[in-house]
């Protein structure tokens, strides 16, 4: 009974936060995005519409069809059979286990960290919009906490910050937490809209937008790699990337995306990066937190 009351209180507060109208457009966008991807990957029959240039062989043998909702937390491994098999094999001995342990130690021993983050299961609650500060990503929050405690060597992209985030993500995942990004003010809604606009804007000398590859292009290949969908993008960070031979945050990954678009990367911690992540985070709302994870 007590549990039920708590659950309904929680649901009530969630509804209250999102019922004030500021997230109306974002909710509409998120639903449309989910519907688009569920339709796109629903059936082999739609392939000529969504994957006009994919080979018959890969459409027949290397796609998992009919994926829905929570499955998108896995990124491209939700539908890429070959990639998924390689991924699962690597997960037999996850290369990020030491990072989680180190993150736990950092959480417990770094002065002030527990005070900044009394609950470590909050990976899905970021980015947040804070009045007067603007968008705060999880990495921003960690680094500014370290700075407030006069600690050095905390970066937005990797190292201690990524390790601590791995611990947060893992704790959130184990507790069954979901992405729960909130838009509860006019300013927050405006930041979301700016992030969205950037996501769909063509940029760099290749004039690609993020959406070229991760909405319309998701599931199609650049060389041998199937592109991952925007829906579910933020759920599994930080990630251990084979290319990096180490762990990195969303900020670190986005720098790489910028380069691929033919653009000088925006600085992690810049308003541009923060607002883009705010939009991306909101698009994954409701999906289970699934980090840390491995990527190529």
């Amino acid at each position: 009974m007590k549990k039920k009351i708590i659950a309904s209180l929680l649901l009530g507060s969630f509804a209250l936060l999102n019922a004030n109208g500021f997230s109306k457009q974002a909710d509409k966008d998120r639903k449309a995005l989910q519907a688009y991807f569920e339709k796109k990957f629903a059936d082999r029959k739609n392939a000529s519409t969504y994957f006009p240039y994919s080979t018959k062989d890969e459409l027949d043998n290397n796609f998992k069809w009919g994926i829905k909702g929570d499955e998108f937390r896995l990124g491209s491994y939700a539908f890429d059979k070959g990639g998924r098999a390689q991924h699962d094999e690597m997960m037999d001995m996850p290369p990020f286990e030491d990072n989680i342990d180190n993150g736990k130690e950092l959480y417990e021993k770094t002065p002030g960290m527990k005070k900044c983050f009394p609950d470590p299961t909050i990976a899905g609650d970021y980015p947040k919009y804070v009045k007067g500060k603007g968008v705060v990503t999880l990495s921003d929050a960690v680094v500014s906490c370290a700075k407030a405690n006069k600690l050095k060597g905390w970066k937005l992209t990797k190292g201690k910050t990524a390790d601590l985030e791995a611990y947060f993500a893992n704790a959130s995942k184990e507790k069954g937490k979901r992405v729960n990004v909130v838009i509860d003010s006019k300013e927050a809604a405006a930041a979301y809209e700016r992030g969205k606009k950037e996501y769909y804007t063509q940029r760099g000398y290749l004039q690609l937008s993020c959406a070229t590859c991760h909405v319309q292009g998701a599931g199609q290949r650049v060389r041998n790699e199937k592109l991952s969908p925007l829906f579910g993008h933020t759920t599994h960070f930080p990630v251990y990337r084979l290319k990096w031979q180490g762990l990195g945050t969303l900020e670190r990954r986005i720098k790489g995306c910028n380069k691929n678009q033919g653009e000088t990367p925006h600085k992690p911690g810049s308003t541009w990066t923060k607002e883009l992540i705010y939009f991306m985070g909101y698009m994954s709302n409701g999906l289970p937190v699934d980090g840390p994870d491995i990527r190529k």
């Binding site: 240039y53 994919s54 890969e58 199609q220 650049v222 060389r223 041998n224």
Partner: peptide, 21 residues
């Protein structure tokens, strides 16, 4: 170009599928 395009009769190492063959 290989990132997105395969080419008929040309042996390529893993051409992409964003653009037409």
């Amino acid at each position: 170009c290989i990132a997105c395009h395969a080419a008929n009769g040309v042996k390529l190492d893993g051409p992409g599928s964003l653009g037409p063959k």
